[in-house]
Structures are given as C-alpha cells and as structure tokens.
Write a protein that binds this DNA or RNA. Structure first.
Lengths: 195, 195
DNA sequence: ACCTAAAAGCTAATGCCATTAGCCACGCTG
DNA sequence: CAGCGTGGCTAATGGCATTAGCTTTTAGGT
C-alpha cells in the first residue's frame, strides 16, 4: 500500500513510453489500461492526474509536436539558405522513423476541430512557421509562400506516412526516393525565386 | 419476427453508408453497432454474414480501393500524354473530398501488415500501377519510374490528408495550392524525360 | 402439400475499455 | 500528536465486440 508517487508529468511520460513501445500504431493503441499497468496502479487512479483519455492524448501530442518543432529549430542553427529546406525535410523523416508513434500523434490532426486543443494548434503553427522560414530561404516570392509551404508539407508528410505504413511495396531504396522527392521540391521552388 | 433479408453484400453496403455518413472520421468510427442499427437487426446477427469487425473493415476498404482504381481508369479513357497525371491527381482529390470516409479506408494501410488482406494489397497495387502509367506518359525514364511514382503518391496523398484533416490553417485558396503542387510535380518530372 | 434441415435471426453471457462515485489511508503541516 | 488534503483503491455503469446456444423462418426435396 505504498504510494506510487505519480503526478501529471509522470503520467504523460509513461504514456509517451507506451506510444514509443507501440511502434507505428503506438498512438492509436494508447490506452489508459496500458498506462496504468506501466505505473503499477489501477486505471481510475490516473484520473487524479489527467482528465481522461482524450486529455492525455492531447498532452502527449503536445509534447510530440514540440519535439518536432525543436528538431526543426535545431536544424536552423546549423543550416541556412538553400540548405535549410532539404535539411529540415530530412530531419522530419529521421525523427518520424525514430519515433513513429509520436509522428502519428502529430498527424492525428483531429486537433484542428477540437475546441480544447488551442495549445496544440499553436504548437503546430510554430512548426509550420519553421518550414515557412526554410521555404523563404530558398527565395520563393511572398505571393507563393503559402502554396509552397503547403506543397512542402504535403510532400514530406505524405512520404513519411506512406513509408511508415509500409505503403512502398517495391524493395527499391526508399532513402533514394526521398532524396529524389526533396531534390525535386527544392529545384521546383528555386525556379520560382526572384533573381 | 420477419427476416431482414441481409446478406454479405447488403451488410457491406450498410457499412459503406455508415462510413459515408461519418464524414472524415467515418471509417475510424465504423462500428458493428452502427451497422446493426441501420440494418434493424441485433449486433450478433451480423456475424452470420461477416466474420467480425476487422473482416468487415477489409471488405469495405476493398470496395473503396477499387472505387479509386475505377476512377483512375476512367480518367485514362479521356486523357493521355502529359494530361494524364494532372487529371489523375485532380480525380483523386475530388473523390477524396466527395467521400472522405472512404479515402481514410484506403489510407488505413494497416493492410500492408495484415496477412488476411491479400486482395486489398492487390487492389492497391493496381491503383499504383495506374499512377505509374500516368508517370510513364510524362516521359520519365524507366530508372526513375519508381522514385517518380513515390513522389507523386506522397505529394497527392499528403495534400489530401492534410486538407481533409483541416491541416491548412490559412484561409487561402486550397484549390490553387493543389494546382500549384500538381504543376510543380508535372514540371519536375517532365524535366527528367528523355528527349 | 408436407417435412426437414440449413440459414438467419434472437437472447444471454463474457470480457475489455473508459468513466464516475464514493471510500480509506498515507503523510505532511500545524 | 491531531487533522486534513491528496493519491490511491474498489465497485458500479455503459459502450463495444465476440461467442454460445436457442428458435423460427424458409427453401427444397419427396
């Protein structure tokens, strides 16, 4: 009957561990049962620290989104100009492959319609702003910025999702395909740049 | 106590109706309860026609994938050459917007790892083959075919997913952004073509 | 026209999950 | 040392999928 000594942060950490151990479906499979088992605690005890499963999902997703934002900010410390966008794209894919469950948490953009997810939307907007910087560094004119950022997000996100879901049937080198995609993206956007 | 007169196909049709009525989360929210309610039947009765929820999901997904394949084949009847790929991309997005729940069914590519989903993988391969035709019609050399098809799939799929999830925060014209993406894709791939 | 057997429905029971209510004991604070 | 807030518990409820086993329709053969 000793106490487990949980608090909000500890519960979120355990949930992150569940997500990470769950592979590509870790976030979808996140369950209060699993977290409670890891904490060595009965399920209802978790309600003393988090408001329920949806709230826990939001907190987990927030951590994940911020982790992605941090990764992009780190890239911006070491790269600039035309190198920034490809390095950012590679960073996103690397991170997604390393912690696929967390990437799904970010992707689960059900957040957009969730009134309780303001913090998540803000964090997401910061990630997009980071990408926008990278696009700007390519010299894309302002009136094409939004289109260009959307194209980058769509391409990279689509690639990562397909790859994580095993959607690329052929055994051919997936790294090379990603390089091809990124090179095409950078080339196409550079061609828009004002001389 | 009259019979409902269900059979496998009728149950799948009802499930499709549930998916369609459920909007962008229709497939995720597909439930035996919902189908049974629509059929005017108790839940266990459905087991006389389908093997369970996972099996029903597979059958629904198969219909959806084939619907996408049909749409692409229809495009190929009316377009050719460099027009084929952009028209195919537009067809995919249009269909996804019209029946977003079905698009999610296609996307739920958990199928790849599911040993019971051979038919689904085959149908998916046929859709990819259709896109491969469109890429070939742009004159992309054979040794770049796979990379190019992956880039197309990633871009279009990523765009559609982000759009359906409401991921494009800015109010700016999403149609124009998609046209921009497709134009960039076509331009980039044409530039690879053997003269 | 009947009789039979398979097929299609049902209810009941089980188990997993989230959530709520309400109880108890640990352990800090005065 | 007394008291109280907090973190844990058990019990109960409700939604879902699934399995077992029963009943009745209905189609088909004689």
């Amino acid at each position: 009957m000793p106490r487990a000594g949980l608090d909000r942060a500890a519960v979120v950490d355990l949930a992150l561990a569940v997500v990470d151990d769950g592979g590509r479906t870790g976030f979808a499979d996140l369950t209060l049962s699993a977290v409670a088992a890891r904490a060595g605690v009965a399920v209802p005890s978790l309600y003393k620290h988090v408001a329920g499963l949806p709230a826990l999902r939001r907190e987990v997703a927030l951590v994940c989104i911020e982790q992605f934002g941090d990764a992009l900010r780190a890239v911006r410390q070491t790269r600039s100009g035309a190198d920034l966008l490809p390095a950012s794209a590679q960073a996103i894919r690397h991170l997604a492959r390393r912690v696929p469950g967390r990437y799904q948490a970010v992707q689960s953009a059900a957040w957009v319609h969730d009134p309780d997810a303001v913090a998540l939307r803000d964090a997401g907007a910061r990630v997009v702003a980071e990408l926008s910087e990278a696009v700007a560094a390519l010299g894309v004119p302002d009136d094409r910025r939004i289109d260009a950022v959307r194209a980058v997000r769509a391409s990279v996100h689509g690639f990562v999702v397909l790859e994580l879901d095993g959607g690329f049937g052929m055994p051919d080198d997936v790294d090379a395909s990603f390089d091809f995609l990124v090179a095409g993206l950078v080339g196409g956007l550079e061609r828009l740049s004002v001389p």
